[in-house]
Design a protein around this nucleic acid. Structure first.
Lengths: 199, 199
DNA sequence: TCTTTTCTGTCTATTTAATAGACAATTGAT
DNA sequence: ATCAATTGTCTATTAAATAGACAGAAAAGA
């Protein structure tokens, strides 16, 4: 009698629709993707689509949220640090944002398209910023006094710029090399990082 | 009242199990893949697995058949030729075996693994041979008389050797370049090809 | 422009694939 | 030798998925 909002079965079906939308968006651009295209690709009945989503925009929103929420959560675990870490000791392990994006590159490649998932181009960098705001604490080199809000925005968008390039070039440089580059640039003005706990 | 042997819904579920098995086999080797692994990966209930397959071996067999049958069928269409074609006029369009393998490279990469889908290492080349036997007719350079059974076996396994290398090197050379190479080698002893119709 | 086709969103009724869970037997690892 | 995990088989249950109709909107063609 209790109808579940989320079950393994529902999630599975939704994921298949999400994957279909991702591929179709790359193929023909989001605006020209039809619900029929999606159900044909995912091999479901058209009725099934409407039991889960109102239209393709709701599906796109769901897809976007799934991956951006996933990105947020990926930061906390499993390599969460408890004390502050000097940037000259930063290791690749700290950067699970990067590995998350790489693992889900099939989705994040969508930022290289113009006619793509709605709001992706704004909400992806916003999410990076949110992570910086909520999950990290920074210490400037020589304790230079700065407005930390601005500093976080500055470094977050700097990082976003590097990420965009990494994605757009088809992940040419390896994860490890890319992380090294990010660390090198961080050291120019960040003395230490603290990863803020979830609770 | 009539129970269908194959429905879109069944096929879809089976495909998901097949994909899960493919990935897991690459990850940990076929012998150590469990049914539990498969259902966890594909996100189905374990009971569901047994409504479709007896065990992982039956799934493997199904997967193997799907792709080898697909390969057979890919030859006939859509570029089936009706008259004989001189090898110096062979074009890339004739080689839909190659494009099929490339499109399904996620599966065919399994030949680069030792502990892989049972019988793949023998049945893949056997299928290539079967295609040569049933779908092609050859004409040797200068009409040199040969036992055509042997000739087909010889050229089929030669082609298989090239394919194996192409797959093993991670599809380094492009489809087009690879096809050109195959054509060049074919010309050394094949004067003409005829694609045999299905019916 | 008008015509035709395709797609949409919403709605039924139906069914069957998927689920949950128990069970003893088997396997694998320590 | 022991313990945990997995297997294969079996129930009963259910809700996701299907089939299909419908009028209206949108897109494509003439």
């Amino acid at each position: 009698m209790i109808e579940q909002l989320s079950t393994p079965r529902k999630n599975r079906t939704k994921e298949h629709f999400q994957l279909a939308l991702t591929d179709l968006t790359k193929q023909k651009g989001f605006h020209s993707v039809t619900v029929k295209d999606i159900v044909d690709k995912a091999k479901y009945n058209r009725s099934t689509f409407y039991t889960h989503y109102q239209d393709k925009y709701e599906l796109a929103e769901d897809l976007l949220c799934s991956l951006l929420d996933g990105l947020m959560e990926a930061v906390g675990e499993p390599y969460q640090l408890k004390q502050k870490v000097n940037t000259d000791h930063l290791t690749a392990k700290s950067f699970n944002i990067i590995s998350y994006i790489y693992e889900n590159r099939n989705f994040f490649e969508l930022i290289t398209y113009q006619d793509t998932i709605p709001d992706l181009h704004t909400r992806f960098p916003e999410t990076i910023l949110k992570i910086y705001q909520e999950k990290f604490e920074f210490e400037t080199i020589n304790h230079l006094p700065v407005d930390m809000d601005y500093f976080k925005r500055y470094t977050a968008y700097g990082f976003f710029g590097l990420l965009s390039n990494w994605i757009s070039t088809g992940f040419e440089t390896s994860q490890e090399e890319f992380i090294e580059e990010v660390i090198r640039l961080s050291r120019t003005h960040i003395a230490a990082v603290r990863f803020v706990g979830e609770r």
